[in-house]
Amino acid sequence: MTDANFFFDNLPFFIPLIIVELVLMITAIVHIFRHQHYQHGNRWLWLLAVMFIQPFGAIAYFVFGRELE
């Protein structure tokens, strides 16, 4: 079985999964750009974390990164 086959076979799983992760990532990225200050870390660190460590980068951002209001 090729990777593509594998992917298309499980499309009913991957499509919602990808959508959910994209929503999470975009929400986090929008939030990062809308704020100048963070509890810990800086803008680049959080952008990298959110984009490349899915989905935990986004959780970490909202818990440890976002500015306290």
Partner: peptide
């Protein structure tokens, strides 16, 4: 504070990933 959103999305991921 986006808590509901994050929790919702994360647990959707768990729900899809398990099966």
């Amino acid at each position: 504070k986006h808590h509901l959103l994050i929790i919702g999305l994360i647990f959707m991921i768990f729900g899809i990933e398990s099966p």
